[in-house]
Design a protein around this nucleic acid. Structure first.
Lengths: 161, 161
DNA sequence: ACAGTATAATACGTATCGGTATAATACGAT
DNA sequence: ATCGTATTATACCGATACGTATTATACTGT
């Protein structure tokens, strides 16, 4: 049996400062980075791109013409989430749906020219924003933290089964 | 000038796996813990409590009868976010608003009996869920990660100024 | 060929959070 | 006392995410 971190004091019954709660910290950082990215895209003039599009864009830049469900898997999103997200991406002229000639259930998602051309600017913004957000964090610390987060996610996947 | 983590490889231009992106990891973990807490509250029978209420409940358990704005500060939420959150908490019979006799602009938030009585069960759920989610993480690793997250948040506060 | 099952995408409702604008009230300086 | 400013909370809207139910197709075994 593995050690429970709670034996330490992850979530003491009497919390004075929410900063002592890992859930608070992680949620806050997530929202903060989202907000910084949103502002970054706007400032850089790629205002059609929203933070939530990132996972989808990354997947499509790698391989255009993916199914909604595969796109969701790569972006870590549920199919029901994808529908609205793709609606917004179509509205914002970054991608479009097309029927799959081999399977009429399937919608294949393709980038528009604008979606393809946004790549360089978007990656620059993300890189810049992250380097500001993570200012003062060493490479090693970052690696350790990312490793921990990956393990936490895999804990969740275990629980799912 | 501080070291930029990006000099390492926080967000390489060619991302194969979203797991290599800190933003992806943090967002996912945040959503995952939220989901686990929601399920935990339901399973424990405290289904009136939603994960988003936690910050507010913690503050009110510590000191009942706070202003909306102070409650928001303690929970890390904007006033405009608080309005809807408190609407839901009132609907769910956990708290209620009352006029402040000393300042007619102010609404003071008080716990209902149900809100007060939920404390023990809620803290147990949170503690249990967190210990499952963070299974296999040592106390030291957890401390280091929380420290990193605190620094990231304070970077954001610097930028705000 | 057909019944039963599996898969893809969507529709719909709810929760959560922030930004902007607004209404009501308080307060401070004159 | 009054004008201008600050503060408090809310209204409103958009973005983001999920769960459940539903529709349309595809596939599988008989």
């Amino acid at each position: 049996m593995k050690t429970k971190v709670t034996d330490g004091c992850i979530f003491p019954a009497s919390i004075e400062d929410p900063s002592d709660c890992p859930y608070y910290l992680i949620s806050r950082v997530s929202l903060m980075v989202t907000s910084a990215l949103k502002k970054g895209f706007a400032d850089a003039g790629v205002d059609a791109v929203k933070p939530a599009y990132l996972g989808v864009l990354l997947a499509l830049w790698r391989e255009d013409g993916l199914k909604v469900i595969d796109l969701g898997r790569q972006a870590g999103l549920e199919p029901s989430t994808m529908t609205g997200l793709l609606d917004r991406m179509e509205r914002d002229k970054l991608a479009y749906r097309a029927n799959d000639p081999h399977d009429r259930r399937v919608q294949l998602i393709y980038l528009t020219d604008q979606g393809r051309e946004a790549r360089k600017a978007v990656l620059t913004v993300v890189s810049d924003v992250l380097s500001i957000v993570f200012t003062g964090i060493s490479f090693q610390e970052m690696s350790q933290t990312m490793d921990l987060l990956r393990r936490v996610l895999s804990n969740a996947n275990e629980g799912r089964k």
